[in-house]
């Protein structure tokens, strides 16, 4: 690769020292990372094409659970896109998470049907009872609360996803009870 281009290439901001491309993984502290290998293989499958950026970001999130700046830098370097562009795309789409989610994830559907059926009150109750804010995690990192716009389960609204399980026709008490029992189980297991 052209060295000049490499020096000016995207992802070397604060995260990378401007050395050879091969070194980037080392600098990112990602060496010997099996997950990185998976990502690399996927990017190779996509021919390192810039137009596959969204697909690659999806893959990265699937592998890591979220996409932090180090991973973004690695992707930008690999597919030779400007850092600002990659960062811009990753932050535009709300599906991509920049922070590591908590151990258990509650996703409340805030689609119209669920809203009309009172999901807002349930969300407020979760926030209050487990001291977690929508879009964030609790201080101990055990619980995250996310909002999504319609999961398409409108006919059984209000719907809430607890760790990948869609629960339909929920009530405030039911949700609070479920979450409490999950957290209780967690406690017992760690003891």
């Amino acid at each position: 690769m052209d060295t000049k281009k490499n020096l000016r290439s995207s992802s070397q901001s604060i995260l990378l020292s401007p050395k050879k491309k091969d070194n980037s993984a080392v600098n990112l502290g990602l060496k010997n990372d099996k997950r990185l290998l998976k990502l690399e293989n996927f990017m190779r499958k996509m021919n390192y094409k810039g137009c596959a950026l969204l697909e690659i970001l999806h893959k990265a999130q699937e592998i890591y659970g979220y996409i932090n700046k180090n991973v973004l830098a690695y992707i930008a370097e690999a597919i030779e896109l400007p850092a600002s562009h990659v960062f811009g795309v990753a932050t535009f789409y709300s599906y991509f998470k920049q922070q590591q989610p908590g151990k258990h994830v509650i996703t409340a559907c805030l689609g119209t049907a669920c809203y009309v059926k009172g999901v807002e009150e349930i969300i407020c109750a979760i926030e209050k009872n487990f001291s977690v804010k929508r879009g964030g995690s609790s201080d101990d990192g055990k619980l995250s609360l996310f909002i999504t716009r319609c999961i398409g389960a409108c006919a059984i609204g209000p719907a809430i996803i607890i760790d990948d399980d869609i629960i339909g026709n929920v009530t405030e008490d039911l949700v609070l009870e479920k979450i409490t029992s999950i957290l209780e189980r967690e406690k017992i297991e760690t003891c």
Partner: peptide
């Protein structure tokens, strides 16, 4: 092609940008 949570991507010029891997 997978979208990633952007309602505006239903607009026809926006969907093009998204398929091309842009904002």
């Amino acid at each position: 092609r997978l979208g990633a949570g952007a309602f505006v991507a239903g607009e026809e010029t926006a969907i093009i940008a998204s398929v091309e891997g842009r904002r």
